[in-house]
């Protein structure tokens, strides 16, 4: 699949934003001492707001006919993208209410604001889940069509959220809270494990082949002519191909940036390294998302001569 930059940015930033806000609310309401700090909460909340909004705006760049973007709310009944849109919008009033509460009341929130916070956190995760389901529901791309996709999206969203939360806290308070450090380390581990399982799982060829695609199951099948010599929408969109060697390098880079380095930086416990850890992780996750697309093989490629997906 062709990795559209706007979609990479969208899923990574909004994922981080949703992860951040849900962990922030959780940590706040669970009474974690360092998070009973208005400045931390406001900064974290604002950061989440910016990441999510920036991500969403970026996602519309990917639309070829954005003037109809508003119509994306129409098909909540069947479309995960529609659902994502609806939840993404529903999320905002609660987030704003929650942040407004903090702005007015500080960390000690009234019930209404607390409820808003809980709903915002929940909707954040639901939206993130919907995003993941857009991909996971596609039977046409076996690398995506599994429970591992939502697991990855959620784990990585939470992981980057946790890193950001730790960074915000560490910067605001001049020292990294152990509990956030452990949360982030735990989530980095979880994310890494989820990703590695995913990579392992997509490694073995499965599903449709050029034989089932063309209906000729008894002999070899080779494409002689795809019906056009220059490009086509299908080739641009689905024909993205990277050499295996480069993919391997990028995988190492991704694991290093997204998991290993942030983990080590955070392990050091140095407050000033926490922002660096989250920046590296975001860069790593951009690579991860790029790979998520680049390594996905749409079945339509079988008609263009690929032997399996």
């Amino acid at each position: 699949m062709h990795p559209a930059f706007s979609v990479l940015v969208f899923t990574v930033l909004s994922g981080a934003g949703y992860g951040l806000i849900s962990l922030l609310v959780l940590a706040h309401l669970a009474g974690i001492p360092q998070l009973q700090d208005t400045a931390v909460l406001l900064a974290g909340g604002l950061l989440a707001f910016l990441l999510i909004t920036g991500g969403l705006l970026s996602s519309t760049l990917h639309l070829a006919n954005p003037k109809n973007a508003w119509r994306a709310f129409s098909r909540f009944r069947t479309s995960w993208l529609s659902r994502e849109a609806v939840f993404a919008v529903l999320f905002y009033p609660f987030l704003l209410l929650y942040l407004f509460g903090i702005y007015r009341q500080g960390a000690e929130l009234g019930a209404l604001f607390k409820l808003a916070g809980i709903l915002a956190a929940t909707l954040a995760l639901v939206t993130l889940f919907c995003t993941s389901m857009i991909y996971a529901s596609l039977k046409t791309i076996r690398q995506w069509n599994s429970a591992l996709t939502p697991l990855n999206y959620l784990a990585l969203g939470l992981m980057s959220g946790a890193l950001l939360l730790a960074a915000v806290q560490a910067v605001a308070q001049g020292g990294l809270a152990a509990v956030l450090q452990q949360l982030a380390l735990g989530l980095v581990l979880l994310g890494a494990v989820a990703k590695l399982i995913y990579l392992f799982w997509i490694g073995k060829p499965a599903g449709s082949t050029i034989h089932t695609a063309t209906g000729f199951t008894q002999a070899s099948v080779r494409l002689l002519d795809q019906g056009h010599t220059a490009n086509s929408f299908l080739n641009d969109e689905f024909g993205y191909r990277v050499e295996a060697e480069r993919l391997m390098k990028l995988r190492y880079l991704m694991v290093g940036l997204a998991f290993v380095l942030p983990f080590m930086l955070l392990l050091s416990g140095q407050a000033w390294l926490a922002p660096a850890a989250s920046v590296l992780a975001i860069a790593g996750l951009l690579t991860e998302r790029w790979l998520f697309f680049a390594e996905a093989r749409h079945v339509v490629r079988l008609f263009h001569g690929e032997q399996h997906t």
């Binding site: 699949m1 990917h62 639309l63 070829a64 006919n65 954005p66 003037k67 109809n68 973007a69 119509r71 994306a72 479309s79 993208l81 857009i134 596609l138 039977k139 046409t140 791309i141 449709s208 086509s232 929408f233 299908l234 969109e237 689905f238 749409h298 079945v299 339509v300 008609f303």
Partner: peptide, 23 residues
């Protein structure tokens, strides 16, 4: 249509193509 391409992703048969001008 808003030109999000999602339907073309969902189609196994390559039956959908985005109009390069109209989007």
């Amino acid at each position: 249509c808003m030109g999000c391409n999602l339907c073309s992703w969902a189609c196994p048969y390559g039956a959908r193509e985005l109009d390069p001008h109209q989007g």
